[in-house]
Nucleic acid binder design. Structure first.
Length: 270
DNA sequence: ATCCAGGAGCTTT
DNA sequence: AAAGCTCATGGA
């Protein structure tokens, strides 16, 4: 274990960590502390001069986590030309989309259904403390085989409510082995339908998993906030399927980033 | 008290 | 395919 401080890809920690795509980053004395898998890291500095303090052996993991190979400057330059998004791009410079561990995103967004962000964070923290591995710097997210062996009441006791059954059943499938890499390359509709086979995963949660775990930039999660903003965006009331279709036409391969900008702007208007 | 939260599953039209 | 009802929970 040798901790090092290295520069990491330019991004805005404040905006990215508060954008509702991750639930396990907390700020302590000017440093953002987070755990993914069994890895701990601290993020310091401000956009565009950002540094990471982590175990040297984990640095490749974190480089991938912070999506180092994707050109957000180029994507934002495209989106800023859309007059409905330009202000959000300006107000949220340095936003990126994280590439988090598949199982953690899968379970976290099952918990997110019909829920709010502070409570989602609270629940995830509780199940991590109770069922995750203890590390030197906090508790890891629970492993699939651990959650798979729980009873519904165990998770209900941590506030998961009616989602407890979904978490156990989904964890059983993952713990038996699941090749999620295929979801990165197959057509969006197919990938979404595959994920919807998991109990507790619908189209919205499926799109979140495709973006925040698998790095797909063409997905477009339609939640209550995006529903609200679509009226202004497209000029009429639409079903969720129509919203996804229109968004795909308008934003194409930048749909996920457009959605994230719109979500932030609508949820926390300046 | 009533409504809402990064919805989804199930049943009924 | 589309609409309606229900599912826990805590905060506003």
């Amino acid at each position: 274990m040798s901790f090092i401080i290295k520069s990491i890809r330019p991004f805005n920690p404040e905006i990215t960590f508060n954008s509702g795509q991750c639930f396990r980053w907390e700020k302590q004395d000017n440093a953002w502390q987070g755990i993914a898998e069994n890895n701990y890291a601290e993020i310091i500095g401000t956009y565009p001069n950002v540094y990471i303090n982590c175990d040297e052996a984990d640095y490749p993991f974190w480089k991938n986590y912070f999506d180092s190979s994707y050109d957000y400057e180029a994507a934002s330059a495209v989106l800023i030309q859309d007059n409905k998004i330009s202000q959000a791009v300006i107000n949220n410079k340095g936003l990126i989309l994280l590439r988090q561990p598949f199982f953690e995103v899968l379970i976290s967004f099952i918990i997110s259904a019909n829920n709010n962000i502070p409570r989602i964070k609270s629940i995830i923290n509780k199940i991590s403390v109770k069922y995750g591995d203890k590390t030197n710097n906090g508790y890891a997210f629970p492993k699939p085989d651990v959650l798979a062996q729980l009873k519904e009441v165990d998770l209900s006791a941590q506030g998961c409510g009616y989602r407890s059954r979904y978490i156990v059943e989904t964890s059983k499938i993952i713990s038996k082995g699941y090749f999620y890499e295929k979801l990165i390359t197959i057509p969006l509709e197919n990938a979404r339908n595959e994920l919807c086979k998991f109990m507790g995963v619908g189209k919205k949660v499926a799109d979140c998993i495709l973006i925040y775990a698998l790095g797909r930039k063409d997905a477009y999660p339609v939640d209550t906030w995006i529903r609200k903003v679509s009226l202004d965006l497209f000029g009429k009331e639409m079903t969720d399927d129509e919203i996804r279709k229109k968004a795909a036409e308008r934003f194409g391969r930048d749909a996920a980033l457009a959605q994230q900008y719109l979500f932030i702007a609508k949820r926390e208007p300046l």
